[in-house]
């Protein structure tokens, strides 16, 4: 009867009888299942046909009305896991993928956490380094400031030295000019002497000087001429003073030959003066007030004296 039930040929009354039997007798049920398995090969004869979508829609409305828990849920539901599993491959795959993904995620999170810890340690190290660098930097900056101060001092000193050097250079230039001027005058005197020597007549030369002063003059007189040419060789004169030339006859008072300008000058001589000079009279130079001694007698110091010599 199990075979007939399985194959489906029983009349309704017989079907009900067999079902009643199965409810009481597990062996009847087992026999049926055996037959169902034996004949299941014939199931291949059924060609699948896609049902219209509306079937599923209506089915959902019947089973899963939104407002109420399906009355049948207790019978199906959780207890039907075995059946759901048999066709739940997609769900299973999704669950496995989810599990794997969760595993990956947790691994990623752990790695992320490790990386974060490492990064924090690095950051701490970097902060310490930075503090040390700051301290070094402050030290360097202080040193630098001190050096800058010293440098400023040295620069000021240098500027001062440059000023002094400028002043010294100026002085030196002045001295050089004076020296050049003196050298020119000396050259003139030599030329004068040479010219006199070349002339026919004998020449009287007077070298005026003094142990007490630096003043030196050279006087030249050609015998028979009415003049004496005087050249200052050394010694400066204050601006408010003049040199005055004097002719000194032995045993007599000195006679002024006049104020003599700086540098070379020719002084005219009277016949008496010529006679005195050629007779061995001295020449002297004194420093007087501007314009010479007002009294006709030397008032200032005599700075150079000389005796004529015949060349």
């Amino acid at each position: 009867m199990a075979a007939e039930y399985a194959i489906g040929v029983l009349e309704p009354a017989d079907r009900l009888r067999f079902e009643a039997l199965m409810a009481q007798d597990p062996q009847a049920r087992a026999a049926l299942v055996q037959w169902q398995n034996r004949l299941s090969g014939l199931d291949d004869a059924y060609v699948p046909v896609a049902p219209p979508a509306v079937v599923k829609k209506r089915l959902d409305e019947r089973l899963f009305a939104a407002t109420s828990t399906p009355a049948s849920d207790a019978a199906g539901g959780w207890n039907a896991l075995a059946l759901w599993r048999a066709f739940g491959s997609l769900a299973t795959v999704a669950a496995v993928v989810l599990a794997i993904f969760a595993g990956h995620l947790s691994g990623e999170m752990k790695r992320g956490g490790d990386a974060l810890t490492a990064a924090r340690q690095e950051a701490d190290q970097a902060r310490n380094d930075l503090a040390a660098y700051r301290t070094d930097l402050e030290t360097y900056e202080n040193e630098l400031a001190q050096r800058a101060d010293r440098l400023a001092g040295l620069e000021a000193e240098l500027a001062s030295m440059r000023d002094q050097l400028g002043t010294a250079n100026g002085d030196l230039a002045g001295l050089r000019q004076v020296l050049a001027s003196r050298e020119a005058e000396l050259a003139d005197a030599r030329a004068e002497l040479t010219a006199a020597l070349e002339r026919a007549g004998p020449v009287l030369v007077v070298s005026l000087q003094s142990r007490d002063s630096d003043y030196r003059f050279l006087a030249v007189h050609e015998q028979g001429s009415g003049e004496v040419r005087l050249t200052r060789v050394a010694g400066d004169l204050a601006a408010d003073r003049d040199f005055e030339l004097w002719l000194v006859e032995p045993q007599k008072e000195a006679v002024s030959l006049g104020v003599i300008p700086a540098g070379k000058t020719a002084v005219a001589l009277s016949p008496d003066h010529v006679r005195v000079l050629e007779g061995g009279g001295l020449l002297a130079v004194s420093i007087e007030q501007k314009g010479g001694s007002p009294t006709g007698v030397a008032q200032g110091p005599v700075v150079a004296v000389g005796v004529p010599e015949t060349l």
Partner: peptide, 23 residues
């Protein structure tokens, strides 16, 4: 449980409805 069953049921329908409709 109902929700879980429903998802499984949808899958079951998808997998088996054509064969059963053929029957």
């Amino acid at each position: 449980t109902g929700l879980k069953s429903r998802a499984a049921f949808d899958q079951l329908y998808l997998a088996t409805a054509p064969k059963l409709f053929g029957v």
